[in-house]
Computed example of a mutant assay.
Amino acid sequence: MNFSQKDFILLTNDLNTALGLYVIYQAINNCDAKYQTILKKLYFDNKRQLDVMRELNITHNTAWRWRLDASNQFAVNLIKLQKQLGINDLKDLRVFK
């Protein structure tokens, strides 16, 4: 299911909150598919990493590597989207630039 910025505006009366939710949603959806999966399971479904490893049938080392790579890809996507949308108070979650 795809959501638009308008869909998030309908969820809240606060335009800034709606925009923030939309940017986070898009930043995750712009990640590689395997990274989307791990991010959504860990942070939206609130699953433990061990459970995610079992569901995805991946090793401990692979799970940690994907989690780090997914987090970094998300952070880069977040910066790009904020710039595209003209958000002045940029949130920068990158560990390394």
Rank of each mutant, 00 (worst) to 15 (best):
M1P: 06
M1K: 08
M1W: 01
N2A: 13
N2E: 15
N2L: 12
F3C: 11
F3I: 10
S4M: 09
S4C: 09
Q5P: 00
Q5A: 08
K6N: 12
D7L: 12
F8I: 09
I9S: 08
T12W: 03
T12S: 14
N13C: 08
A18S: 12
A18T: 04
L19P: 03
G20V: 00
L21P: 02
Y22I: 08
Y22G: 07
Y22P: 01
Y22H: 13
I24M: 14
Q26H: 10
I28W: 06
I28E: 14
N29D: 13
N30R: 15
C31R: 12
C31S: 15
C31Q: 12
A33N: 11
K34D: 14
T37M: 09
T37S: 09
L39K: 03
K40S: 07
K41Q: 12
K41W: 06
K41P: 01
Y43M: 09
Y43V: 04
F44H: 11
D45Y: 08
N46M: 02
K47I: 02
K47M: 15
K47S: 07
R48E: 11
Q49T: 02
Q49I: 10
Q49S: 01
L50Y: 05
L50D: 05
D51W: 02
V52M: 04
R54E: 15
R54D: 14
L56F: 08
I58W: 02
I58A: 09
I58K: 03
T59P: 01
T59L: 03
H60W: 02
H60I: 06
N61S: 14
T62A: 15
T62V: 14
A63C: 13
A63K: 07
A63P: 05
A63I: 05
W64V: 02
W66Y: 15
R67Y: 04
L68A: 00
L68I: 01
A70N: 08
S71L: 14
Q73F: 04
F74I: 10
F74D: 00
F74Y: 14
A75K: 02
A75H: 00
A75I: 04
V76E: 15
V76R: 15
V76M: 10
V76L: 14
V76S: 14
N77Q: 11
N77L: 10
N77Y: 06
N77F: 11
I79G: 04
K80E: 13
K80G: 03
L81K: 01
Q82K: 06
Q84S: 12
L85E: 03
G86S: 03
G86N: 13
G86A: 06
I87S: 02
I87H: 03
D89A: 14
D89T: 06
L90S: 06
L90C: 05
L90G: 03
K91I: 15
D92S: 05
R94H: 00
R94I: 01
R94Q: 05
R94A: 00
R94F: 00
V95F: 07
V95I: 14
V95L: 12
F96L: 04
F96D: 01
K97C: 03
K97M: 05
